[in-house]
């Protein structure tokens, strides 16, 4: 096992709130690595820092032995890390197929390729194959904005695969997905993993995480509490403590991860 991603002492504060407070852990090549923790423990901020969407105040992220801290999201994507967003980010007025083709754009020299039509050289076929892989090939011609929340999650995963990244960061892939179908999602992720991809998953659904991941990192108050095998994590008393603390927090603000809430935030986002 080799360390593929090494996170060292990442800190990030928003105003006075310390979202990350010296967070360190490593992801091994070929693993499905889970990232769990109560709300506000800094999971999404960590994702943002690792993929260049947020600049850390301190610390470093190494990928394949190279430091990627503070690089632009585009650069990190080109280096082989693809990510999804908790609230999906699809190009809503473009067709599902066009969404797929955009993610393939970076593979060409821009000046040479700007005027060629997108989808050439088998790209279009590959896009359709990948849509088929996640199960939404029949929606290829639809406007992406007309897809349901779950369908968008799948589209986002599919278009990342267009770029064939070595690593996939999935931000709550099962959030909003019908429970009875989570098994199939698990299967897809396993297949990708078997094909050699390292996967880092943020997820709240414990069953999903425990069943899927080779290794799990528990976050609490901006630090990585521990990284271990699912079974060990399950029985670690510190994890229970972290979550019990979290339950009280959640009781006040409702459960922000329920589907109802996710759509609410989604609607809110499109309004502003």
């Amino acid at each position: 096992m080799t360390d593929l991603i090494e996170v060292k002492g990442i800190a990030k504060a928003f105003g006075g709130i310390k979202a990350l407070n010296g967070c360190s852990f490593t992801v091994q090549k070929g693993d499905i690595h889970g990232l769990i923790g109560p709300n506000g423990s800094g999971k999404t901020t960590l994702f943002n820092v690792m993929t260049g969407y947020e600049r850390p105040d301190a610390g470093s992220v190494n990928f394949n032995g190279k430091e990627i801290t503070g690089q632009s999201p585009g650069k990190i994507f080109r280096m082989g890390i693809g990510r999804t967003f908790q609230l999906t980010r699809v190009f809503s007025r473009l067709s599902v197929l066009d969404n797929m083709l955009i993610a393939a754009q970076h593979q060409h020299k821009w000046f040479k390729s700007a005027l060629r039509s997108p989808g050439q050289g088998g790209e279009r076929q590959r896009a359709l194959d990948l849509l088929d892989f996640v199960g939404i090939a029949r929606l290829a011609e639809l406007e992406a904005g007309s897809l349901s929340y779950g369908q968008r999650k799948l589209l986002e995963l599919a278009y990342l695969l267009m770029a064939d990244p070595d690593v996939l960061f999935l931000d709550e892939p099962a959030g909003g997905v019908n429970p009875t179908l989570i098994n199939q999602l698990t299967e897809r992720i396993r297949e990708l993993n078997a094909a050699g991809k390292t996967i880092l998953v943020v997820e709240h659904n414990m069953e999903f995480v425990m069943g899927l991941c080779d290794r799990i990192t528990v976050m609490h108050q901006g630090v990585a509490l521990l990284t271990d095998l699912p079974a060990t994590v399950r029985s670690d008393p510190r994890v229970l403590d972290a979550y019990l603390g979290g339950v009280e927090e959640e009781a006040e603000g409702g459960d922000p991860d329920s589907m109802a809430d996710a759509t609410f935030t989604q609607a809110d986002r499109s309004e502003s």
């Binding site: 996640v134 199960g135 779950g150 019908n178 179908l181 759509t263 609607a267």
Partner: peptide, 13 residues
């Protein structure tokens, strides 16, 4: 194949 597709309550958005 569309098994993964979820409308859930999200379809209303």
């Amino acid at each position: 194949t569309a098994g993964l597709i979820v409308t859930a309550k999200g379809a209303t958005e």
